[in-house]
């Protein structure tokens, strides 16, 4: 096997993101097998749409996790909820306020990110606890702001989030654009090198002149801004903000990073894998759904698959 004539193919197989896409394809085929191949287009469109939400928050989480052990953003769900709630209430269904509403959502993300960072920097609180306690505050703020009232998004915005561009859902286009930009930032820019250096050895990075605190600040802020942006899109997509709309994205955001083959120990991340993981998370659930499994079995299988993928792809098994 080692002297395979197909080194290029082997090269793909050893890429960390390969398994996420391969498993997604398997889940996709297994679902279609049940319906004799019908509905493949719809399933793909749904997968691409829902995976965009997971992918965008996942990319933010990935940047944070790249910073190394202990760095994780637990405030993503609360930031999503707060941004979605505030933006939709502000817009109040008015078409003219779509752009200001978007800016408000992004500003919420900016504020949340800066607050998270200040807790970590000034109060020396471990990031897990800092983002956790901050998320309690954001959640309360969201509850207080509109008391669970569901305000419809402007129609144009709702149409946009559910619409498609030459067959590709608009949300997917946005998600892929963000992924491409993130890939360039991570792999081709100085800033990306700094993030990886921070994750591999913070002390060495600092001694070699990397502005470590600025790197950390920008990373936490971008995670929060991406979460806020997703909250804005998700609230518009689902016809209004709900107070629990971000809940499931806490687990998903971490899961897609790891399934995608990024190192949870930091310093080594890859963007394509995020999309692979996001697609996989959706396709597995819809596969189990179409096979008629109940919620319980679905949860058990999802968990088992996450652990199996991580056990197979990381740890001692991988020579990298």
């Amino acid at each position: 096997m080692a002297k395979s004539p197909l080194p290029a193919m082997l090269g793909i197989v050893t890429r960390p993101w390969f398994w996420a896409f391969a498993a997604s394809a398997l889940a996709f085929i297994a679902t279609l097998y049940l319906s004799d191949g019908r509905g493949g287009g719809e399933l793909l469109a749904a997968a691409l749409t829902f995976a965009s939400f997971s992918a965008i928050v996942g990319i933010g989480q990935m940047f944070v996790i790249t910073l190394g052990p202990g760095n994780v953003d637990l405030s993503i769900p609360a930031t999503m909820t707060l941004a979605g709630t505030l933006a939709l209430k502000f817009m109040g269904g008015e078409t003219g306020l779509i752009v200001p509403g978007l800016l408000l959502a992004l500003a919420v993300g900016l504020g949340a990110g800066i607050f998270n960072y200040l807790l970590i920097r000034l109060l020396r609180i471990p990031p897990i606890i800092a983002t956790l306690s901050a998320s309690f505050l954001y959640q309360s703020l969201a509850i207080w702001w509109n008391r669970g009232l569901r305000i419809k998004p402007p129609e144009v915005l709702a149409d946009f989030t559910t619409g498609a561009l030459i067959g590709i859902p608009n949300l997917t286009v946005i998600g892929i654009l963000i992924a491409v930009v993130s890939w360039v930032v991570l792999e081709r820019s100085l800033f990306g090198r700094w993030i990886s250096a921070f994750g591999q050895n913070t002390r060495a990075a600092r001694l070699s002149g990397v502005p470590v605190e600025a790197v950390r600040a920008i990373t936490y802020v971008s995670s929060a801004v991406l979460a806020a942006f997703t909250g804005y899109l998700l609230a518009s997509f689902s016809g209004g903000a709900a107070l629990n709309m971000g809940t499931e994205y806490l687990l998903i955001s971490i899961a897609v990073v790891v399934i995608g083959g990024s190192s949870i120990a930091g310093g080594n991340s890859n963007v394509p894998g995020i999309w692979g993981g996001a697609l996989l998370m959706f396709l597995v659930v819809s596969m189990l759904n179409s096979y008629g499994f109940g919620a319980g079995v679905r949860l058990i299988m999802t968990g088992t698959i996450i652990i199996a993928i991580v056990a197979a792809a990381s740890g001692k098994g991988r020579s990298a």
Binding site: V72, L251, I254, A255, V258, I264, A265, L299, I300, T302, G303, T304, I305, I306, I307, V310, A311, S314, G315, K316, G317
Partner: peptide
């Protein structure tokens, strides 16, 4: 044994 990240394995177990 497999040097897995606990945060992910326990996350998976939370589903289970």
């Amino acid at each position: 044994l497999r040097e897995l990240p606990a945060i992910v394995v326990t996350l998976g177990m939370s589903f289970v």
